[in-house]
Amino acid sequence: MLKISGGWLRILLLAGLFLSFFLWVSDFNPYVQQVLMYLGVNIILTVSLNLINGYMGEFSVGHAGFMAIGAYVAAWLTVKVMPPSLITWLYPVVIILGGVAAALAGLVLAFPSFKTRGDYLAIVTLAFNMIVKNALENIEAVGGPRGFLGIPNLTNLPWVYFWTVLAVLGVRNFVYSNFGRGILAIREDETAAELTGVNTRQVKVLAFVISSFLAGVAGALFAHILMFINPGSFTILKSTDILVMVYLGGIGSIAGSILGASIYTILLELLRPLQIWRWVVGPLLLILLLIFRPRGIMGLREYLGFIPKEEGGINYGREKGSTTLAG
């Protein structure tokens, strides 16, 4: 894996961690803190899905299914398994196990999924999302359609920021690794990638597992922020929201993922007075984006700070003649 480059980037991350800790301990507006925590979860979801839809060029639409698995596994562990006296100390392990459970589901789904491409992959992942939701509605051990109650409040703003930074830097390092170059080669031309020695099947499965793991981590954090989850929280509408954030910010761009998640999360909060009608915004915005700007705001472009020095400022996958955004 590549090392983090750029002193300013390390300073920015440390400053963000300090700020989030300060806001948490200073009894800052709880509503604002909660919105910031949801923003962190959405950034993790967007970055993870962008790995598949943006960098690899596939089209997955069932990301909420992996999020649901991570959320329910983590919630079940903290409520049913972990000793109350050790829950706080074991909480990081719970988050990781939620991600691992989602990654295992992603591994099982990856093998049949990547025998198909395009619209067929979208159908497979959509069916997976529906299977997970319907299965959870019929498992009484986790509350069935009533939902899972009694989840302890273990997540705070510094914790969410910490996991968000890990997700962003993890995907950034993966994209610029040897496997990451294989992903970009698959997006451009899978046949050519195979002819040049890329093990396309292995690269696809690895990318799908990493994406699923991060979605599971986001689900685990989400469950312990909300302290209540039900199958209705992870429908195709939730997957649509994640797709909107990916295509709004820009495919194949980590900075675009952060931008798209930020804009969409804040937009939904501003539209809260519209009540249920605000959920119409997501699908409508997705349709408009795919028609008028299918690559999003920063599609196939990257902020200079996320590009390693070893790359010399090269942004793989850019269109000919386009420029890297400098910081």
Rank of each mutant, 00 (worst) to 15 (best):
residue 197 G to Q: 13
residue 197 G to H: 14
residue 199 N to K: 13
residue 201 R to E: 08
residue 201 R to L: 11
residue 203 V to G: 08
residue 203 V to D: 06
residue 204 K to S: 09
residue 205 V to R: 05
residue 206 L to H: 00
residue 206 L to N: 01
residue 206 L to E: 02
residue 207 A to Q: 06
residue 208 F to P: 03
residue 208 F to K: 05
residue 211 S to C: 13
residue 211 S to D: 12
residue 212 S to A: 15
residue 214 L to S: 04
residue 215 A to L: 14
residue 218 A to Y: 12
residue 218 A to L: 12
residue 218 A to P: 12
residue 219 G to I: 09
residue 219 G to M: 06
residue 219 G to R: 03
residue 220 A to I: 12
residue 221 L to V: 09
residue 222 F to M: 10
residue 222 F to S: 08
residue 223 A to D: 04
residue 223 A to M: 07
residue 223 A to K: 08
residue 224 H to C: 02
residue 226 L to Q: 15
residue 226 L to R: 14
residue 226 L to K: 15
residue 227 M to P: 06
residue 228 F to G: 02
residue 228 F to S: 00
residue 228 F to C: 00
residue 229 I to M: 02
residue 230 N to G: 13
residue 230 N to F: 14
residue 231 P to L: 00
residue 232 G to Y: 03
residue 232 G to L: 02
residue 233 S to R: 05
residue 234 F to V: 09
residue 235 T to C: 04
residue 236 I to A: 07
residue 237 L to M: 11
residue 238 K to E: 10
residue 239 S to N: 05
residue 240 T to E: 09
residue 240 T to S: 11
residue 241 D to M: 13
residue 241 D to V: 10
residue 242 I to L: 07
residue 243 L to P: 03
residue 244 V to I: 05
residue 245 M to S: 04
residue 245 M to Y: 10
residue 245 M to N: 07
residue 245 M to W: 13
residue 246 V to D: 05
residue 247 Y to K: 13
residue 247 Y to T: 14
residue 247 Y to A: 11
residue 247 Y to Q: 12
residue 250 G to D: 03
residue 250 G to M: 03
residue 250 G to P: 03
residue 251 I to R: 15
residue 251 I to S: 13
residue 252 G to Q: 00
residue 252 G to E: 00
residue 252 G to F: 01
residue 253 S to Q: 05
residue 253 S to I: 08
residue 254 I to D: 01
residue 255 A to W: 09
residue 255 A to I: 02
residue 256 G to E: 01
residue 256 G to V: 04
residue 256 G to Y: 04
residue 257 S to E: 00
residue 257 S to G: 10
residue 258 I to S: 08
residue 258 I to M: 11
residue 258 I to C: 09
residue 258 I to K: 08
residue 259 L to C: 05
residue 259 L to G: 04
residue 260 G to D: 11
residue 261 A to R: 14
residue 261 A to P: 14
residue 261 A to D: 11
residue 262 S to L: 07
residue 262 S to W: 06
residue 262 S to R: 05
residue 262 S to M: 06
residue 262 S to G: 06
residue 262 S to T: 15
residue 263 I to D: 10
residue 263 I to Y: 12
residue 264 Y to A: 11
residue 264 Y to P: 08
residue 265 T to D: 07
residue 265 T to F: 08
residue 265 T to H: 07
residue 266 I to T: 10
residue 266 I to Y: 14
residue 266 I to A: 13
residue 268 L to Y: 13
residue 268 L to C: 09
residue 269 E to P: 05
residue 270 L to V: 15
residue 271 L to S: 02
residue 271 L to T: 04
residue 272 R to T: 15
residue 272 R to E: 15
residue 273 P to S: 01
residue 274 L to W: 10
residue 275 Q to I: 00
residue 277 W to K: 14
residue 277 W to S: 14
residue 278 R to T: 02
residue 278 R to D: 01
